[in-house]
């Protein structure tokens, strides 16, 4: 079987557009996911039973449903419903909004568990030291515990981001043109589908390998850093 790579150089600008969508999903998913994850982790650890239960329920639900279905539901039902209520009569491009929301909320459930473990890894002694100085629980959490927890979690949080970048290819089920789907479309049109899919795979491989290497470097640095 002979390969024909000639169509790739010319289609790089189109593929780049797709890459921007992929990166957008990753970036928003990571940022919103971490912020919401911190909130969920704090609720989960709060002494209020109801809040703790709600947070646990959220995490369990999102971790028990395949991401593909979450994407479908957000695309077909939830986002059109919400946007229809907020901006009646307008026709908006909903696919990207659906993808960004679905990934953010989905990732938050994973980040919540990572961050909860991070918070629990900070010792009771540190918590007590903060309290003994007269800080209230919220201050101790924000000024003493969370900074230490997040520092310890950085490698795990970034590894999760790499997984998210790979998972972002799932948006093909809602016809959103990310990098992978652009490659697929180009290949389909030109008739070199195998080549384009191989190429796309190689790009993901290179990016993720490089990113993993960076995380490892960072991890080495962080363990040298003055953290107990």
């Amino acid at each position: 079987m002979a390969f024909d790579w000639s169509s790739i150089p010319g289609s790089l600008p189109i593929l780049w557009q797709g890459m921007i969508v992929s990166l957008q999903i990753t970036l928003v998913g990571v940022l919103v996911g971490i912020l919401l994850g911190i909130l969920l982790a704090l609720l989960r650890l709060s002494p209020n039973r109801l809040l703790s239960w709600l947070s646990a329920a959220y995490v369990t639900v999102f971790r028990s449903i395949p991401l593909v279905m979450v994407l479908f539901w957000f695309h077909l039902i939830l986002i059109p419903l919400v946007v229809g209520l907020l901006f009646p009569g307008k026709r908006l491009e909903l696919r990207l909004i659906a993808a960004l929301t679905a990934f953010s909320l989905f990732e938050a459930s994973y980040y919540a568990e990572i961050i909860r473990a991070g918070i629990l890894s900070v010792t009771k002694g540190q918590f007590n030291a903060g309290l003994a100085l007269g800080m209230n629980r919220r201050q101790v959490m924000r000024l003493v515990v969370l900074p230490q927890a997040l520092r310890r979690m950085v490698p795990l949080l970034l590894t999760q981001a790499i997984i998210l970048f790979q998972d972002s290819t799932l948006v093909y089920v809602i016809n959103l043109d990310d990098f992978f789907r652009k490659a697929y479309n180009v290949g389909n049109t030109v008739g070199t589908l195998n080549e384009l899919i191989l190429f796309a795979g190689a790009v993901y491989l290179v990016i993720c390998t490089l990113a993993s290497g960076c995380v490892r470097q960072l991890q080495r640095k962080l363990t040298v850093l003055p953290v107990k």
Binding site: G125, N128, A129, A132, V144, P147, Q148, P226, V227, K228
Partner: peptide
């Protein structure tokens, strides 16, 4: 209060 394990904030 002073603790057995110092409990300075490492960060």
């Amino acid at each position: 209060m002073v603790f057995q394990h110092f409990e300075l904030f490492p960060h």
